[in-house]
Computed example of a mutant assay.
Amino acid sequence: MGRQADGFEYVERADGTVVITHHGRPAGTLRGARVAEFLAEVADDPQLVMARWTGNYRRGNERQARQHPRNRG
């Protein structure tokens, strides 16, 4: 039914929606055409895909990017 990958899990519901959770908390709900796009993409790398679709892919590296020479302005 659902797949789990490092804290992210998704469940396909009978009404056609997909609910993505992160450590048991809702992170996003997909409906309509976005469900088909998500399911086609999630087979490759589930962790990265679910993080990207929920917007949680930038956590943790902002401080390092600020220190990079090209961003020191």
Results as ranks from 00 to 15, higher is better:
residue 49 V to E: 00
residue 45 D to C: 02
residue 30 L to T: 03
residue 47 Q to R: 10
residue 38 F to T: 01
residue 65 A to Q: 06
residue 48 L to T: 11
residue 39 L to C: 02
residue 19 V to Y: 12
residue 52 R to I: 11
residue 43 A to W: 06
residue 1 M to H: 10
residue 24 G to S: 08
residue 17 T to D: 13
residue 5 A to F: 06
residue 63 R to Q: 13
residue 2 G to N: 07
residue 67 Q to L: 09
residue 23 H to L: 12
residue 11 V to N: 14
residue 6 D to F: 11
residue 67 Q to V: 01
residue 60 G to Y: 00
residue 2 G to F: 04
residue 39 L to M: 07
residue 61 N to S: 09
residue 6 D to H: 11
residue 65 A to S: 03
residue 63 R to F: 08
residue 51 A to N: 00
residue 28 G to Y: 02
residue 61 N to Q: 09
residue 28 G to H: 07
residue 45 D to S: 04
residue 10 Y to M: 03
residue 2 G to E: 05
residue 3 R to Y: 14
residue 73 G to I: 11
residue 55 G to R: 06
residue 46 P to S: 00
residue 71 N to A: 04
residue 53 W to C: 03
residue 25 R to L: 13
residue 34 R to Y: 10
residue 5 A to H: 05
residue 70 R to M: 07
residue 9 E to Q: 09
residue 50 M to C: 01
residue 60 G to N: 04
residue 5 A to D: 09
residue 31 R to C: 14
residue 24 G to K: 09
residue 1 M to L: 08
residue 49 V to C: 02
residue 51 A to G: 05
residue 31 R to A: 15
residue 69 P to K: 00
residue 33 A to Q: 14
residue 72 R to W: 02
residue 58 R to N: 06
residue 66 R to S: 06
residue 6 D to E: 13
residue 26 P to N: 14
residue 15 D to L: 08
residue 27 A to L: 02
residue 55 G to E: 07
residue 56 N to M: 13
residue 58 R to F: 08
residue 3 R to C: 12
residue 28 G to F: 02
residue 44 D to M: 05
residue 56 N to S: 06
residue 42 V to D: 00
residue 44 D to E: 13
residue 40 A to G: 11
residue 48 L to V: 08
residue 29 T to A: 14
residue 35 V to H: 04
residue 27 A to F: 02
residue 8 F to Y: 10
residue 35 V to P: 06
residue 30 L to A: 04
residue 41 E to Y: 04
residue 41 E to T: 04
residue 18 V to P: 04
residue 44 D to G: 07
residue 46 P to R: 00
residue 12 E to H: 12
residue 40 A to H: 10
residue 1 M to G: 10
residue 35 V to F: 05
residue 62 E to W: 04
residue 4 Q to Y: 12
residue 70 R to Q: 13
residue 67 Q to N: 10
residue 64 Q to A: 05
residue 4 Q to F: 13
residue 59 R to L: 10
residue 5 A to R: 04
residue 69 P to Q: 03
residue 64 Q to Y: 00
residue 38 F to Q: 02
residue 21 T to F: 10
residue 29 T to Y: 08
residue 56 N to L: 14
residue 53 W to P: 03
residue 56 N to V: 00
residue 69 P to I: 03
residue 16 G to S: 09
residue 57 Y to R: 06
residue 47 Q to A: 09
residue 55 G to S: 05
residue 23 H to Q: 12
residue 21 T to R: 13
residue 27 A to P: 00
residue 26 P to T: 14
residue 72 R to T: 05
residue 27 A to S: 03
residue 67 Q to W: 05
residue 37 E to Y: 06
residue 50 M to G: 00
residue 72 R to Y: 01
